[in-house]
Nucleic acid binder design. Structure first.
Length: 376
RNA sequence: GUAUCCUUAGUUCAGUUGGUAGAGCACCAGAUUGUGGUUCUGGGUGUCAUGGGUUCGAGCCCCAUAGGAUACC
């Protein structure tokens, strides 16, 4: 993997760049649709590429490890071949899922033991076997195994949690560097900066991670219960400490406003379930604001979904029709909403890139944030 | 035709010795940030079939009418 920074915004920390992987290039800032189990829910790969214009998607180690399992993934020749996606893929390690999904979990210095949310069976992730697992999945970018500390954790808990994450990171990197990719293309690994909302812990986390000199760094443990302003403060603290010539990935974030504010603070990569999950539940993000498509007000609004959107679905389907599909519980509703929202998120980061290149990102961001977060 | 039972929110139903009604679903709104097509939160939207009567007061008791169910001629 290679990152080439192309342009720095003079008024903010926003920047443009290009990530090059063996599965193609990614223009940053970028939003990465989440495809947990090897599927961006409800969207054809064809539409993801040609309509949404996704440049990279996510998979999840926790889910893929449980189903279909490593034997199938290895036999398929890795996740790219298994799902028929030839552009870059990033996999999360599953640390967050162990924290958010498993009914039973136990963290030890060795690793984390958890119960499957599918059948209750017990499993253990260690940094070492997690590397092996992500080698088998074969993503272009793999994430270190970490503990995602809750946003309201005490300093003492956050400090202890960070120690564990740092210990796991050392072992993860050691094993990663001792092993080889399995399918003939290269993989890179991003450490994850934790530290909750405590500046000294975040600083410590950055210093520790930088010792390993990796090709990119992730910022985790944000948008997990802390106020949004705290998240922005942490980004303002962490990003300047990270090397200018490496991409920064803010994990799990966020709203359209979060993306623009993150970009302004120096973030290059984002992922979030919001456009797809909230889309499935009827929430549409547009340049003019946010619509709840289930609302009665759209019942007989026969105007296009989004006049200023670039997706095929934006002009082809009407608001009244989409509301009808949601109220009727049709899966088609979720498909249309997902495609629209992902298209909007990708449009949003593309517009951000264009304004960074044009040199007017900051002023554009100020007016745009207000507009896109309006409730329609 | 006769007998018995039923009729309460959009719907399926609950409603105590008579004190002017409640639940599930639906509906209306809100939440959702490294995904379990979820889940959570808030909102009752009513001519108690209709018309009379008894009573201080009726969804409840009495009479009539309408509609429905079952059984027997």
């Amino acid at each position: 993997m290679r990152f080439q920074k192309i342009r720095q915004d003079p008024q903010s920390s926003a920047r443009c760049g290009i990530i090059t992987t063996d599965h193609g290039t990614i223009q940053t800032p970028i939003f990465m649709p989440v495809g947990t189990v090897g599927s961006v829910k409800g969207v054809y790969h064809r539409d993801l590429k040609e309509d949404v214009k996704a440049e990279i998607i996510l998979g999840n180690t926790y889910h893929l490890y449980l189903r279909p399992g490593l034997d199938i993934l290895r036999a398929a020749g890795g996740l790219h071949k298994f799902i028929g996606w030839d552009r870059p893929i990033l996999t999360d390690s599953g640390g967050f899922q162990v924290f958010s999904l498993s009914p039973i979990r136990k963290l030890t210095p060795e690793g984390c033991t958890f119960a499957s949310h599918i059948d209750g069976s017990r499993h253990t992730f260690t940094p070492e076997n997690n590397v092996d697992t992500q080698r088998i999945i074969g993503a272009d970018i793999v994430m270190a195994l970490d503990e995602c500390c809750p946003g309201d954790a005490t300093f003492a808990y956050a400090e202890k949690s960070l120690k564990l994450t740092q210990n796991w990171l050392e072992r993860f990197i050691r094993h990663f560097d001792e092993t080889e990719p399995l399918y003939g293309y290269s993989q890179t690994l991003f450490p994850i900066i934790q530290g909750c909302v405590y500046p000294e812990l975040r600083k410590q986390a950055v210093e520790h991670a930088l010792r390993f000199d990796r090709e990119g760094y992730a910022i985790g443990g944000l948008a997990v219960g802390e106020p949004t302003e705290e998240m922005y403060r942490m980004l303002e603290l962490v990003c300047p400490l990270l090397p200018d010539d490496r991409p920064r990935y803010l994990m799990g974030v966020g709203t359209p406003a979060n993306l623009l504010e993150g970009i302004a603070r120096g973030v290059d990569m984002f992922d979030c379930v919001m456009p797809t999950r909230n889309g499935r539940n009827g929430m549409l993000f547009t340049w003019n604001g946010i619509m709840n498509m289930r609302n009665k007000k759209w019942e007989s609004d026969f105007s296009p979904l989004d006049e200023s959107g670039s997706s095929f679905v934006d002009r082809y389907y009407t608001k009244a029709y989409l509301r009808h599909l949601f109220v009727s519980g049709e899966m088609f509703a979720a498909m249309i909403a997902s495609e629209h929202n992902l298209s909007f998120y990708l449009d949003l980061v593309r517009a951000a890139r264009e304004h960074i290149m044009a040199g007017d990102f900051s002023s554009w961001k100020e007016v745009t944030v207000k507009r896109i977060m309006t409730r329609l």
